[in-house]
Write a protein that binds this DNA or RNA. Structure first.
Lengths: 247, 247
DNA sequence: CATTAAGATATGTTTAGACAATCCTCATGG
DNA sequence: CCATGAGGATTGTCTAAACATATCTTAATG
């Protein structure tokens, strides 16, 4: 990216480190195992902590994958899930269209009690039982998304969920056809990975994630699902076509 | 948020730290200066590094502001820039509608040479001169967004920019009325703050930012502007209404 | 009274090291 | 040949400390 605020573009040691790391990654074939952290730190003349800090941003961009006990590997930039967000679609649908593979990893279906926010969302009493479906989605041999849906018990039979769930609550609802769905209101933000999500996604706690928090509405206006989806940034490219507003 | 993958919700020391910090912040009036990092670390029984790591996520949520040499302050959650992204509007327009104050801080207008990407974007030869407008936007006494627009020299007179620019290239283009604008194609992602952006936004390098990278098109289909906007997550709530797709 | 400089305070960055947790390889035994 | 366990390799987390940088306060001087 050209242009910057600092008139004197003198490179700090950390920026030099970033550039050198970027060069090393660019020069390595996908699948390459990089030197160990202690070795790389020594080569680049920085401490292991400083190197790790720099590596985090490359991992966030999907250029590296680090595996505890195994090593650090360069990732090929092939399977990016690219889609517009004007239309709500499941990851499976997007994958199918892009001819990419995605699968559901670890998952969990449980019953929870509505807290104040959920009670308000579904217009039920606090403490009402809700279904919570949590899973990790995998592509290219790693976890790339952590998804969680909360929905009233009567919206999807628990039995169906337990027997046929393959990763998308939305697809199940669409296939089932009732209630008929109308729209989703989705909030978008960047978050620092909470410990539990980080563990599930095999990243460091505190790493950068893109999060969509959404309410799904039926035609009759009632909320039928509340979801939180955490995406590893380097594996997704979301975009939106925007009309021009009038000030 | 209820529900989690770990069946045994035993709290790790770091999670305990996060909870305690969250409680402390919630219990403090906006504007409160927290104990110094060494003191707080001692009180919470962790090292200063671990405390700093935990504080980063609160700063990302806009709950804290840290100022080098001055201290750490609790932030009141009042002025969140909330808007749909179906329509492209400047921060000033959004602020005006929400009755929030925003102003332009440090800015820079310079001429740059088109690299390969920019040459392709604007359909010009590599090396062609382009204008680059970079600025930091302030609200509530702090930097909350780092914005950068790149545009061909003939789209906006440099003189006009230098004399009347107050923060929004979009608003200038709309007021000028030519070329007539049609739409913006915006990519959305979460990024780890690069050093220069971090410095401008007064955050730690590597912190979480929401980034929009956009191409603005005129009615005749030509690209008239390419921009990158970095947003401090806690100060913005972007949302989108999504139609339901068919798998 | 205003300005400036020095000292104190506090966050930002870097380093080194220790230990925990995970993964991989190799040797051994069934 | 396969399973298992031990040991080595490597990343993840935490700690302590040092130094850089920024801010604030206070004292001295004009």
């Amino acid at each position: 990216m050209a242009g910057h605020l600092d008139k004197n573009p003198h490179e700090s040691p950390y920026q030099r480190l970033q550039r050198q790391l970027g060069d090393l990654i660019a020069a390595s074939e996908p699948g390459t195992k990089l030197p160990t952290e202690p070795d790389l730190a020594a080569q680049m003349g920085v401490s292991r902590s400083t190197l790790r800090e720099a590596m985090r941003s490359f991992e966030a961009q999907g250029l590296l994958i680090r595996r505890q006990g195994a090593g650090t590997f360069v990732v090929g930039k092939s399977g990016v899930f690219e889609t517009g967000i004007e239309v709500l679609e499941s990851l499976e649908t997007i994958a199918s269209r892009l001819k990419l593979k995605i699968s559901m990893g670890e998952s969990q279906i449980e019953t929870i009690q509505a807290d104040e926010d959920m009670a308000k969302c579904f217009e039920v009493r606090k403490g009402t039982s809700l279904l919570c479906v949590t899973r990790v989605m995998h592509a290219e041999g790693r976890s790339i998304a952590f998804l969680q849906d909360i929905l009233p018990r009567d919206i999807l039979p628990l039995k169906d969920l337990q027997e046929t769930f393959t990763g998308s609550v939305l697809d199940m609802l669409i296939r089932r056809g009732k209630p008929p769905l109308e729209k989703s209101f989705t909030e978008i933000n960047a978050v620092s990975a909470p410990s539990r999500v980080a563990r599930a996604l095999e990243i460091q706690r505190g790493d950068v994630l893109l999060m969509f928090e959404a309410d799904l509405f039926a035609l009759d206006g009632s909320a039928v699902d509340h979801s939180r989806s955490y995406f590893l940034p380097g594996y997704f490219r979301f975009h939106v076509l925007r009309k021009i507003g009038v000030p």
